[in-house]
Nucleic acid binder design. Structure first.
Lengths: 201, 201
DNA sequence: GTACTATGTGAGCAATACCTCACATTGACT
DNA sequence: AGTCAATGTGAGGTATTGCTCACATAGTAC
């Protein structure tokens, strides 16, 4: 069928490796030195490639950021999937604990990177392709909540994710002890407490 | 007493007004055009002053940011104080609702500004004077929680603040309806649920 | 008017950033 | 060895930014 077929599958091994190197370098720079030091020259040097190579695989600096956001989002989604594997029969609190622990672990591994990616995701997300990837995670969480009979799974998924993110970001370098349990407590309250609870004097 | 007294009180009216203009311009630029467009030239133009004037009252660009963070933190603290005035006799949920509503209102007024200031506060807070101002708000919240007999008021104050901030930031431009009630539910769960609740099958 | 200080101005410097492009290198295939 | 396309290089163009400093203006006291 292909009238103009490439004569052979062009070896993508090298280039794929270069792309990986660039993303790895970008991640390390963001984690270790912050967003301000994240520039094309630094990334190229850390990756062991020239600046030109970056622009061979990415249309611009922001595209590297987008790729990083997507990669990390996919990894996190995979972690969530693992945490939820076989958790259908667990009681709500136990299942929530597995979810929250996955989130805490993910953010703990590279806290600065995770924070920066959250911020950049918002900045780049206005009208780009980033949202699609991130919404996969939200959809997975919403499905879990739906199984549990939560009234408004989509909104609840968003709220719980934002809640956990906020608490983790703020507490990681302050009071990390028992953080998972604290978050689970709040999540349980959000999910189980009725609209007007605890009114008595 | 004053051996070397200034011969008269130097009129601070003009300069005070210039400082206010600069801060107001900075706030508007951050809210309307984002952190990337926040540069000295833009601030000076928006404020109707020259670039030199900025450097007459601030040692650098970051100092403008710090001043903005402090101003907004003070305003928020004042809002919290108002919300808590006469709330001692209210039941926990009602008092929490007043607190959360104050936070939601504050972030809703200038959501982008609030988000950016949160981020910049963290970036600038490493070793500067910003922390002192922000910790005032946390201390006020901790005192409220202490009155209610909360076990670990300092940590709880931090957790609740981070929780609310995360949920508000994420939901403001998605599902603002009932946001206050949703946050209160999570906060109530955090505060009232025992360490190991809801275990039964 | 004169002197003096406080306040305001903005052209331009130094630094840095993103990105281009003409060129070098590599490696598969003949 | 020779050819060709894919891949890699990095000096430098262009643009922007934070900031300085020599100067102008305004207001007060005499």
């Amino acid at each position: 069928m292909t009238a103009i077929a490439p004569r052979k599958p062009p070896r993508q091994n090298r280039s794929q490796q270069t792309v990986t190197d660039i993303l790895e370098a970008a991640a390390h720079i963001l984690e270790d030195r912050g967003l301000a030091k994240f520039n094309t020259n630094a990334v190229a040097e850390r990756a062991g490639v020239s600046i030109g190579s970056i622009y061979q695989y990415f249309p611009g600096k922001d595209a590297v950021m987008v790729a990083l956001v997507r990669r990390e989002a996919l990894r996190f989604e995979r972690d969530l999937e693992v945490a939820l594997a076989g958790a259908e029969s667990l009681p709500l609190e136990a299942a929530l604990t597995r979810l929250v622990r996955a989130a805490v672990d993910h953010q703990s591994a590279q806290p600065n990177l995770a924070r920066i990616l959250d911020i950049e995701e918002r900045r780049l997300g206005i009208g780009t392709e980033v949202e699609a990837t991130t919404q996969g995670t939200a959809a997975r969480l919403a499905a879990f909540l739906d199984q549990r009979g939560v009234t408004d799974p989509a909104i609840a998924a968003l709220d719980l994710a934002n809640m956990a993110r906020g608490m983790i970001d703020g507490a990681l370098d302050a009071d990390p002890a028992d953080l998972t349990r604290r978050i689970v407590r709040a999540a349980l309250g959000y999910l189980t407490l009725g609209s007007q609870a605890a009114g008595g004097p």
